[in-house]
Simulated assay, not measured.
Amino acid sequence: MMKRRLAMALLVCAAALPALAADWPAKPITLIVPFPAGGSTDALARLIGQRLSEKLGQPVVVDNRAGAGGNLGTDMVAKAAPDGYTLALSTSGPLANNKYLYKNLRFDPQKDLTPVIAIGEIPMGIAVSPALKVDSLQALLERARVQPGKVSIANPGNGTIGHLTAELLKSQAKVEALGVPYKGDTPAITDTVGGNVDAVSMPITSLVPQIQAGKLKGLAVTSRQRFAGLPQVPTAIEQGIPVEATVWMAIVGPKGLPEAVVTRLNTEINAVIATPEARARLEQYGAAPIGGSPQQLVQLMASDSAKWKKVIETTNITLD
């Protein structure tokens, strides 16, 4: 009898899903941002939320739930009802990297979330002080090759994407270099400009002012294409180093989000990203637009997860 009741309940729930998707949205949608208000992710969420609200005819309310490197807010979405009324605009940390950095992560991004759409990405940058007299990424790596462990590379903190990128670079080039973690971008940049460390690895947007002012020399960006804000800086790939590393933003929902809801969201958000307003906002934060299908985001999450898993496990990086 109990099995029969359970089967009947499951059938009722399954039958309700198409109706739910057809009526969606019938009430306000919450878009969780797992980072503090005022940052680039928050600003993009508010723009997308506003334009999405206009298209869907329901308010999209941005809710900042910061904590644990973005894990807290992303976990809230993973545990929400899959009805299309709770979404997240998260980043590659919670969606790919943090699974291996935090031993006690309470959700699995590839199992507990529904990918909707990738929004944009920011490449990493490798820069040095002009006083170092190094003119290319290859030259920096050659110095590290002939002086194992002597070249120092600053990063914004243990486990950050800047840190992971430097470790990936060392692995690909087969060199030894000293990683120097700082508490944020500013002190890492200050010590590189001052010559206390040889190089720095972090999101390129943080390095733009110093490179433009001539206080740092940009050696490489780690994207497939050159960064529009610094077109004179070549990619690592151009220089024969197959390193691609970006921090990206994406919208996801809970596992089991109805396909019709995912398709509608993907279509509408692609349209928002394509507007001059959204592209200008992305450019303001140094991000290149991505967009595309949910399946493309699935592939991005999987490929980045595999790439950083290898780096993190090889170097024994942990954050808890």
Rank of each mutant, 00 (worst) to 15 (best):
V146S: 15
Q138T: 15
G120A: 13
A139T: 12
P130Y: 11
I122M: 09
I122H: 14
L132Y: 02
I117H: 01
M124G: 12
A118Y: 00
L141P: 10
D135C: 12
I117A: 03
A127D: 10
E121H: 10
G125F: 11
G157C: 12
A144V: 05
L137F: 11
S152A: 15
S136D: 11
A127Y: 06
L140A: 02
D135Y: 07
R145D: 12
I119W: 00
L141D: 09
K150T: 13
R145P: 05
G125W: 09
S152V: 13
V134G: 08
L140Y: 08
V116E: 01
K133F: 02
A127G: 10
P156A: 14
A131H: 06
G149Y: 14
A127T: 04
A154K: 08
P115F: 01
K150V: 14
P156C: 15
L141E: 10
P130E: 03
K133G: 02
N155M: 14
I117L: 08
S152G: 12
S136W: 08
I122Y: 11
V151Q: 05
V116M: 00
K133E: 07
S136M: 11
P130Q: 04
A144D: 05
A144W: 07
V151I: 12
V116D: 01
E142Y: 11
L137D: 00
P123Y: 04
L137Y: 07
R145I: 10
R143V: 12
I117R: 03
P156F: 15
R143K: 15
A139G: 09
V134S: 03
A139K: 15
V146H: 14
I119T: 01
P123K: 00
V134K: 07
R145A: 14
P130W: 07
P115A: 04
R145V: 10
L140W: 07
S136Q: 08
P156E: 14
R143A: 14
R143Q: 15
A118P: 00
G157T: 11
L141Q: 04
A144F: 10
P148H: 11
Q138F: 09
L137N: 03
A154Q: 09
A139L: 09
L141N: 07
V134W: 04
M124P: 06
P130R: 00
P115W: 01
V128E: 03
M124L: 15
